[in-house]
Amino acid sequence: MLKANDIGYWYDRQENSLFEHVNLEFESGTSYAIVGQSGSGKTTFLSLLAGLDKPRAGQIELNGEPINKIGLTNYRRSHVAIVFQSYNLFNYMSPLNNLMTAMAITKSSHQGDKEYAADMLRKLGITDEQMKKNVQKLSGGQQQRVAIARTMCCDAKVVVADEPTGNLDEENTKDVIEQFQKIAHEQKKCVIIVTHEPDVAAMCDHSYRLAKHEFSLEK
């Protein structure tokens, strides 16, 4: 459903391009891991898929339609959900309000349904008490789970995550990846996770390695 069509990207000069002529396809109901050395350009590639930046060459297509035709803001609002290492939650809100806000902005089909949002949080182990206090009073792992719950509440069919387990312990990491797997398999979404942990990559359905400016399928 999501297709990288001959894309290339560089920051200042084309000679220093991170990658060029990349052709990849991501299907719904599947989870993908992207691994690679630090500085190889994983985050950069993910930001292109998330519609946060435009590729220098080629284009990203969603179900055959270039995303810059959909409009990047519109694409981000309706088609993609983002989970980054730093959780990207509103720090002045409770977990519940974070979800409600995201559902309102993305005009989710469950918009305004507090019980639905609470259900998602409960599924990820956030207690009713926790979901009502300020999100900053939660632990890193809990905050990451709130961010994941948020992607579950929104209708976006593409979920991109950049090192979502970066500062979680082993147990939490396993938990979080299981949730992503559920999102892919139960909600039939396309989940793309950037990680440097081999364990995480092993848990995903497929795994790509970015090395020497090229992507190669590992699994």
């Binding site: 803001t73 519109n74 983002i82 002045y92």
Partner: peptide, 13 residues
């Protein structure tokens, strides 16, 4: 800025 970034990433106008 961070809050604004989150809003933008969610696709807020």
């Amino acid at each position: 800025r961070y809050e604004i970034g989150v809003l933008l990433s969610l696709g807020e106008a």
